[in-house]
Design a binder for these strands. Structure first.
Lengths: 150, 150
DNA sequence: CCAGAGAAGATCGTGTACAATATGATTGTC
DNA sequence: GACAATCATATTGTACACGATCTTCTCTGG
């Protein structure tokens, strides 16, 4: 009845490997980020804001993370409710909303600096080993997004 | 003010690469799976059921996909509402719920057989190139889950 | 000037994820 | 053979993702 269709096996599917590994990795951040009271996507937003070091529009944040306003707007409101970021209409263009970390949000950066090392050590994946892999995965993401988004 | 902390850069983080690529890949399946009226996680459940070719408990499905009942129960109910699977208590152990594809669910397998090729061709990632990468990503997922789950 | 096109966010609806808790069934032990 | 521990699933609550639509604001050609 069930002739073997190897292309339908889970183990042969890149997408499933990514899906599984992504969820596992995000879960691994859970406890550490829990100390800071934030989630992984919220942490990603903060990484972008810290790096930019100036107020950013919702759209600009979304370009870095490949997320749209449907995801970011409620997430940013939660960060605002926690006093971690501010959200203000851009006086120069009232369509835009500028997001910036508060003093409390900036202060979290020092604690966060040790997080990647903590987690990847817990992984058992050496940071140096990961460099090539990271590049390769981004290359694939580029290829996929080139055909899907755009 | 913002001294450069390279470990906090998005581009250096394996987790973000996985997170981004996973979402992109799942999105790429969207249109094709939309024809079948199912989502990507629902498709994964069907892959498992087709492969097993016999009724499976919720827990057994979850072991293959690394998902728990909190995610699977509502997902399976939606598949049941669409007439794609059946859900029945196991007479031998009333704690268990056995899930099996209906005739309609089994019929979807033929259409599905071409999906991975369609999507990965759209990716621009040759299936043969992906084999090593898939193995490497699963190895990382294993390592992470070994420290987080279990 | 001003209508319409387009941009930027916000909102809505659906479907995951996942931690925490609840519920009912089974099992090992005395 | 009660019964506490354990197991399998369900439920609840919170937070993403994302397609689709809506609102407001800006810009541009006539």
């Amino acid at each position: 009845m069930a002739d073997h269709l190897p292309q339908l096996e889970l183990g042969n599917q890149l997408c499933f490997a990514l899906y599984r590994a992504s969820r596992a990795a995000v879960r691994a951040y859970g406890p550490v980020l829990g100390e800071l009271g934030i989630t992984y996507p919220q942490y990603l937003v903060l990484l972008v804001l810290w790096e930019a070091d100036e107020p950013m529009s919702v759209g600009a944040i979304g370009e870095h993370l490949h997320l749209d306003s449907g995801t970011l707007t409620p997430l940013l409101k939660r960060l605002q409710d926690q006093g971690i970021v501010t959200r203000e209409r851009d006086p120069d263009d009232e369509r835009r909303v500028l997001v910036a970390p508060t003093a409390a949000g900036r202060a979290m950066r020092k604690r966060a600096a040790t997080i990647p090392a903590e987690v990847s050590q817990q992984y058992g994946v050496a940071v140096s080993d990961a460099v090539d892999l990271i590049a390769e995965i981004h290359k694939i993401a580029d290829a996929i997004e080139g055909t899907v988004d755009a």
